[in-house]
Design a protein around this nucleic acid. Structure first.
Length: 365
DNA sequence: AAAGCACACAACCGCAAGGTG
DNA sequence: ACACCTTGCGGTTGTGTGCTT
């Protein structure tokens, strides 16, 4: 086997020795990595030239020793060198275990981006995609499962899934417990966040909706505030009414709206800002609601198909808004053509993991 | 003490995208 | 336009280590 790029070479595999690390570090710090595939040879050649100069200054007897010990080529393929440098030797790497803040960031960003480890790692300075991936698979995944959440979708596991998970996880017999971990939140906190969300959602322009099951709908204008709600659910949708309740956003879910402490964990006190893949997650300024243009720009950095759908939806929203007051028309857009999950994620990207007491301030700053 | 097991982490593999001749 | 090469990414496997029996 082995890489096709190095099948002809005499390639060493497996763990790197400290000597190999040292050679690689010395070469890259002196010359940069340039072309990775050339490094294994260059790492030897450069050493060779230096050694020759040294040899001219010193006794010929030293020659063999130097050749033997110092200028031996790095018998690794470029791919392996690159990986070793990026994942382990790079000086800006942060070693050690992940902090709670990093863990939250990973969970938040993963909910939006999925298994795009390289993108996720960009939000964690000093961490590599490999590191994040390993941490996810070995730690966070299990935590989420133990919380009764699907690590892929971040939604509640169905009873069947829970069953399966129980079987798979084996030891996770405490799955039905509701530990008061960082993922859970009290109903009063949820209420605060909910009110906060409500306040910002109100900034949306008026729009009508069509075709949602009223029985599954919860209007934010209702005086009864649900202690929890679930926005990470792919079946979770939103819409806004104009006629009877102008400027009110309505949230509905094809999934059951059963009250569960877990489900509320998706909403964040840190704001509803739209995540930019190129920006750092976590401490971004609060953005109550993006204009259609801003949102479109954000969305364009996501998957094209989803962007298209989301923008079409937004365009319809604003288009219909223009018509309000002029004529009483059904301004609905086709919900079947709208990616609610993505829209949901774009509007509510964070988890409810921060300091809930700052919600109002964050909300209105 | 030794075997078995689980876990975390490092490294590998295959694929896709982009660049270049 | 095509083939080849390089790089980057995500999934998977291998390995070392600590714990349990």
């Amino acid at each position: 086997m082995g890489h096709h790029c190095c099948s002809k070479q005499k390639i060493k595999r497996g763990l790197w020795s400290p000597e190999e690390d040292e050679k690689l570090i010395r070469h890259i710090t002196n010359h940069g990595h340039g072309c990775w595939s050339s490094i294994p040879k260059l790492a030897g050649i450069v050493r060779c030239c230096l050694s020759i100069l040294i040899m001219l200054l010193f006794i010929l007897l030293m020659l063999e020793m130097v050749l033997d010990s110092e200028i031996a080529d790095l018998q690794r393929c470029g791919k392996s060198c690159r990986l070793r440098w990026i994942n382990y030797l790079r000086p800006d790497l942060k070693r050690g275990s992940f902090t709670e803040q990093e863990e939250r960031t990973i969970i938040d960003v993963h909910r939006i981006l999925g298994n795009r480890w390289a993108q996720i790692a960009k939000h964690l300075p000093g961490r590599t995609d490999n590191e994040v991936k390993n941490f996810w698979n070995s730690c966070i995944k299990k935590k989420l499962i133990a919380q009764g959440l699907d690590p892929n979708t971040h939604n509640l596991l169905s009873p069947n899934q829970n069953c399966n998970t129980n079987n798979q996880a084996g030891k996770l017999s405490h799955i039905h417990e509701r530990p008061s971990s960082l993922f859970s939140v009290s109903s009063s906190q949820a209420k605060d966040v909910f009110l906060s969300a409500k306040a910002h959602i109100r900034t949306l322009p008026p729009i009508s909706h069509a075709g949602n099951n009223p029985s599954n709908s919860t209007s934010l204008n209702e005086s009864s505030i649900l202690p929890t709600f679930e926005h990470g659910n792919p079946n979770f949708s939103w819409n806004v009414r104009t006629q009877s309740q102008p400027s009110v956003m309505e949230i509905s879910s094809g999934y059951s709206m059963e009250s569960t402490p877990m489900s509320s964990s998706s909403l964040t006190p840190s704001g509803f800002g739209v995540l930019n893949e190129n920006s750092t997650w976590g401490a971004s300024a609060f953005e109550p609601f993006e204009t259609a243009r801003q949102l479109e720009m954000q969305l364009q950095q996501q998957e094209p198909a989803q962007v298209k759908q989301a923008c079409e939806g937004q365009a319809q929203i604003y288009k219909s808004n223009d018509l309000i007051g002029e004529q009483n028309v059904d301004n609905s857009f086709d919900t079947s053509n709208f990616d609610f999950e993505f829209m949901d994620a774009a509007l509510f990207p964070c988890g409810m993991y921060g300091d809930v007491n700052n919600i109002d301030q964050l909300a209105w700053d």
